[in-house]
Simulated assay, not measured.
Amino acid sequence: MVKREFLKNHKQVKFREFAETPEEIEAMIADAVKALDEKGTPNYPDPMLPPWVQFPDYGMTSMKWRMGPGEDYRSDFFEWFVSLTKSNQEIYINSNPEPEDWQGYYQIIIERALQREGNTSQ
C-alpha cells in the first residue's frame, strides 16, 4: 500500500508517496511520466506559483535552489515568467508580491532576461 504524507502549502495540498512494492514503484513512475509534457518538463499550473509559495521552506538564497527540485522549479519559473508580456508580468507581480525576505526577486529575473537577450543578439 502506498503511504501518503500530506503537506499543506498555501492554496494547494502536496503529498509525498512512499512505495513499498515493485508494482507501486512502477505506478509512481508511470504517473510521473504522465505529468511531463513532450519536452520533459513538468506540467505546472498556469500561472505558476511564485517560488516562495511552491517551496515555502526555501529562503531566497538557499542552496536548495541550486540542486534538485528547487533548481528545476526556479529555472522553469524564470523561463515561464520571461515568456510573459511586460503587461502580464506587471499583473503577476501585483498579484503575487514578494515577501519581505524575497524583495528584489522579480527585478533580478527581469535583469537576467535582459542580459541574456543582449548576449544572444550579438
Rank of each mutant, 00 (worst) to 15 (best):
residue 3 K to C: 05
residue 3 K to V: 06
residue 5 E to T: 13
residue 7 L to Q: 05
residue 8 K to N: 09
residue 12 Q to R: 12
residue 12 Q to H: 13
residue 13 V to A: 10
residue 13 V to Q: 11
residue 14 K to S: 12
residue 14 K to V: 04
residue 14 K to C: 10
residue 16 R to Q: 15
residue 16 R to F: 15
residue 18 F to I: 13
residue 18 F to Y: 15
residue 20 E to G: 11
residue 22 P to A: 01
residue 23 E to N: 05
residue 24 E to I: 06
residue 26 E to Y: 14
residue 27 A to S: 11
residue 28 M to W: 02
residue 29 I to P: 04
residue 31 D to K: 11
residue 32 A to I: 02
residue 35 A to V: 08
residue 35 A to C: 07
residue 36 L to A: 02
residue 36 L to D: 01
residue 37 D to H: 06
residue 39 K to C: 09
residue 39 K to L: 12
residue 40 G to I: 04
residue 41 T to F: 11
residue 42 P to N: 13
residue 42 P to V: 08
residue 43 N to C: 10
residue 44 Y to L: 11
residue 45 P to R: 14
residue 50 P to F: 05
residue 50 P to Q: 08
residue 52 W to S: 01
residue 52 W to T: 00
residue 54 Q to M: 12
residue 55 F to H: 07
residue 55 F to K: 00
residue 57 D to T: 12
residue 57 D to S: 11
residue 58 Y to Q: 04
residue 61 T to M: 06
residue 63 M to T: 05
residue 64 K to I: 08
residue 65 W to I: 02
residue 66 R to C: 03
residue 66 R to D: 05
residue 68 G to L: 12
residue 68 G to M: 13
residue 69 P to V: 09
residue 70 G to P: 02
residue 70 G to M: 01
residue 72 D to V: 15
residue 76 D to R: 14
residue 76 D to L: 06
residue 77 F to A: 02
residue 78 F to D: 04
residue 81 F to Q: 09
residue 85 T to A: 09
residue 86 K to I: 10
residue 90 E to C: 02
residue 91 I to S: 09
residue 91 I to F: 10
residue 92 Y to E: 03
residue 92 Y to W: 12
residue 93 I to L: 04
residue 98 E to A: 03
residue 98 E to C: 01
residue 99 P to R: 09
residue 99 P to S: 01
residue 99 P to W: 08
residue 102 W to V: 00
residue 109 I to L: 04
residue 109 I to G: 00
residue 112 R to G: 07
residue 112 R to L: 14
residue 112 R to H: 11
residue 112 R to A: 14
residue 113 A to M: 09
residue 114 L to A: 14
residue 116 R to C: 01
residue 120 T to K: 15
residue 121 S to I: 15
residue 121 S to P: 04
residue 121 S to R: 13
residue 122 Q to H: 13
